[in-house]
Amino acid sequence: MAALTKGRKTPRFAGGGLRNLPVAASAVCFTGGLAIAAAGQARAGREGQGADNTAKAADAATYRAVGVFLKDVTGGSADGDVRVDVQEGVFAFKNSAAADEITQVDIGKPCFVVDDQTVAKTSPNSTRAAAGIVQEVGPEGVWVDVSLTNSALLAA
């Protein structure tokens, strides 16, 4: 699976609030991409960053999935120079493959951020943040309830 290279229309199932968040410096965010807050700054969903799994896990532990981006934006030269609207709700994302593929038996369970359009069943070495709760699996992908509340509860 590859991260987005341009904006896309992400199918939305229902509900959710609207947030306006500061964007991390130089972060590239695409419409419909899964948004995370990292140290309070919005950026595209991703796995934890670092030199090894310990560093990646520590980084991922600071991420909170907050919804999807409502427009394409690129962060300015400093954190918060640009702001973006993010919609909470139930959205369809691409499914991982093989052992990380989400199936019907995973409905009601947490799933994890791979990138800004892909979710997975697991978080190997705790290097992925919780994306939200699986609501459905269908031809559109994995329907996930993404909100700051769910993300915070799953991280606790």
Rank of each mutant, 00 (worst) to 15 (best):
M1A: 11
M1I: 10
A3R: 14
T5V: 13
K6L: 05
K6Y: 06
G7M: 06
G7I: 02
K9H: 08
K9P: 00
K9R: 10
T10W: 00
F13S: 08
A14W: 08
G15T: 10
G16N: 07
G17R: 13
R19K: 11
L21Y: 03
P22V: 07
A24T: 03
V28Y: 01
V28L: 10
F30Y: 15
F30D: 02
G32T: 04
G33V: 06
L34E: 04
A39E: 15
G40R: 11
G40A: 11
A42S: 12
R43V: 05
E47D: 07
G50H: 11
G50N: 13
D52M: 12
D52W: 10
N53A: 14
T54P: 01
T54Q: 15
T54W: 06
K56G: 06
K56S: 11
K56L: 12
A57Y: 03
D59L: 07
T62S: 14
V66A: 09
V66F: 01
G67E: 01
G67M: 03
L70A: 07
V73Y: 01
T74F: 03
G75V: 03
G76E: 12
S77C: 10
A78S: 15
A78H: 14
G80K: 10
G80N: 14
D81W: 05
D81I: 08
V82L: 05
D85A: 04
D85K: 03
V86F: 01
Q87F: 01
V90L: 02
F91G: 00
A97M: 13
A99K: 15
E101H: 08
E101T: 13
E101P: 06
E101K: 15
Q104N: 14
Q104G: 06
V105G: 05
G108K: 15
K109M: 13
P110L: 11
C111G: 04
V114T: 09
T118D: 05
K121G: 01
S123G: 14
P124C: 10
N125I: 07
T127M: 12
R128D: 06
A129C: 15
A129D: 06
A130Y: 07
G132Q: 01
I133G: 00
V137H: 02
V137Q: 02
G138K: 02
P139I: 04
P139N: 12
P139T: 10
G141Q: 02
W143A: 09
W143H: 07
V144C: 01
V144R: 00
V146Y: 01
S147I: 03
S147F: 02
A152W: 09
L154H: 09
A155W: 07
